[in-house]
Design a binder for these strands. Structure first.
Lengths: 165, 165
DNA sequence: CTACATCGTTAGTAGGACTAACGCAACAGG
DNA sequence: CCTGTTGCGTTAGTCCTACTAACGATGTAG
């Protein structure tokens, strides 16, 4: 409907090598898909009054044990300036406990509570469902492969931030 | 170094099924990798005084021909409210031309200039290099597979935004 | 004691996605 | 012909997230 508008100079590119580069650029595909994924996850978690950082912190505590805020920062990838707020939200909901570390009075030791563990189980269910939706078009083997490729790429770029002058 | 801190309650999860869920969640891998990818691409393009939206518009013009701003919006995924600024930047650099459409005086017809085509070739080179860096750890066949998986996922979620009441 | 690093915290920046509303033009129906 | 609806380009502004800067308090090394 939107009228005809073009058809005057078509894909007469001049360089025949790239058919539709826009749609094939991995960086574009990545940010597009991540936008969808983030939306999906954020909305799904919002429905149970949670955010993805909540999950990250709780899971990290469950799997690697208690730690200082700075430790959690490194484990989860949350900036330590943002960690404050996340931990406040979690503490309000009695999912974690913040206690001063007697061995190093700069530190707080963060511990997951029993309610926190319950909460984590719930969030894991929610996320399982959301990931089922996210990866719906892929067969199980493809999902594994996808995760594996992502992991390799991410590991590479984590350890190789930049040559940088 | 960072002290010992934990070792008191270890990964005694209670649900043996998920070893390290945090690191395996596709949504987390995606946003992590996209963050790196965006950084890489933004910095790379900034070095040649460009932004990723510039590329998107120029490539769209080259491949699908001229179009109104709204058309370009749909083709590139840029919101039409943001398109204004992008086109201003491109016009300042003489990479596109904005001419009123005589057939529909609400519209501007956007055309790529000769300098724009040169520019696009340059940006394509830059992006090729950046993608080489981005996908460095993957073999050629794996890169194709990765792009293919991403495409399938993205297509799925583009056409299935949400069931939504 | 001095110099420096790390901790938790507050504040603020920059960018991107997205919404709301405007004036204008086109179009469809009565 | 008026009338309401729709699409257009544009401006303004919101919300969120990643990220930086700096602070006082504390720890550590020389």
């Amino acid at each position: 409907m939107t009228s005809r508008a073009d058809a005057s100079d078509m894909p007469h590119d001049g360089e025949t090598k790239t058919p539709d580069r826009l749609r094939r650029r991995a960086s574009r595909l990545l940010s597009g898909l991540t936008a969808q994924s983030d939306r999906l996850v954020n909305e799904g978690l919002a429905e149970v009054d949670a955010r993805k950082w909540h999950y990250a912190v709780l899971a990290s505590l469950q799997e690697h044990g208690p730690g200082s805020q700075a430790t959690l920062s490194r484990r989860t990838g949350i900036y330590r300036s943002d960690m404050v707020g996340v931990l406040n939200e979690l503490a309000e909901r009695d999912l974690i406990e913040r206690t001063p570390d007697p061995d190093d009075r700069r530190r707080n030791v963060i511990t997951i509570t029993t309610r926190g563990r319950q909460r984590l189980r719930r969030l894991d269910q929610v996320l399982d469902d959301l990931h089922d939706e996210l990866l719906a078009p892929l067969a199980p083997a493809e999902r594994d492969q996808f995760v594996q490729l992502l992991t390799r790429l991410l590991d590479h770029h984590r350890h190789t931030p930049e040559p940088h002058g």
